[in-house]
Amino acid sequence: MLRLACPYCGVRDQPEFRFGGQSHITRPPFEASDAEWADYLFVRDNPKGVLYERWLHEYGCGRWFNVARDTVTHEVLAVYRMGEAKPSLDGNIPGQADVTKL
């Protein structure tokens, strides 16, 4: 079972959480073309490797947070709060005190 470390509540089992899809996606302006809106709404990365995801602690604090997870091994590489910058996973994570590494 996947275990996630909620940055607010600590480590919990996956059934307490709801997957929210890929994180760090920028919404296009209202004037964007239909093709740009279609890309925003339907096109997502599906890498074999690290994916930055959003998760909701649905049966806990009810807050959203971000996770960097390896899609091959399911290893959680970093957990960080919404609004924080995407961490660099080269071993040099900015704001290390605010990032929970598992």
Rank of each mutant, 00 (worst) to 15 (best):
W64S: 06
H74E: 07
P15S: 14
R44F: 13
G10T: 10
F17C: 04
A85Y: 05
H57N: 09
Y40E: 02
N66K: 10
F65R: 04
S88A: 15
T73I: 09
V72G: 01
W55Y: 15
H57K: 01
E31K: 07
W55I: 08
L102E: 14
V11Y: 04
D70Y: 01
P7H: 03
P47I: 02
F42I: 05
D34W: 10
A38G: 03
L77W: 05
G95Q: 01
N66E: 10
A68E: 04
A97N: 13
T26Q: 11
Y52K: 00
A85K: 14
L4C: 02
N46W: 11
F42V: 06
P28C: 04
G83H: 05
G95V: 00
G20I: 00
P87M: 07
G49W: 07
K101Y: 08
L77C: 06
A97V: 14
Y8D: 12
E58D: 03
D39A: 11
N46D: 14
A35N: 03
Q96P: 00
T73W: 04
V11A: 10
Y52H: 09
T73A: 06
T71E: 12
R44A: 07
R3L: 01
K101E: 11
L51N: 09
R3D: 00
R63Y: 01
L4R: 00
Q22M: 11
G95K: 01
D98P: 00
L102G: 09
T100N: 03
D13S: 15
A5Q: 08
N92D: 12
V11E: 13
P47K: 03
V72H: 04
D34I: 06
F19M: 13
C6A: 06
P7Y: 06
L2G: 00
A32H: 03
I93Y: 10
N46L: 10
R18W: 12
R63W: 00
A78V: 01
A35I: 05
Y80H: 12
W64D: 14
G91I: 09
L56P: 07
F42T: 14
P29M: 06
H24V: 11
L77R: 15
A97I: 14
G20A: 01
L77T: 02
N66P: 02
D70S: 02
H24Q: 12
P28Q: 06
T73R: 05
A38E: 14
G60I: 11
D98M: 09
P28E: 05
F19I: 05
I25N: 10
V50S: 03
T73S: 14
D45G: 10
A38L: 13
R44Y: 13
A5F: 13
C6M: 06
F19L: 14
Y8W: 10
D13G: 15
L89Y: 07
Y8M: 03
Q96I: 13
Q96S: 13
R27T: 13
F42Y: 14
D34C: 06
H74G: 02
R69W: 00
Y80E: 05
T73N: 07
R27D: 07
G83L: 03
R18V: 15
F19E: 14
Y80I: 02
Y8S: 09
V67T: 05
R12L: 08
I93M: 15
A97Q: 14
D39G: 01
V79P: 03
Q14R: 11
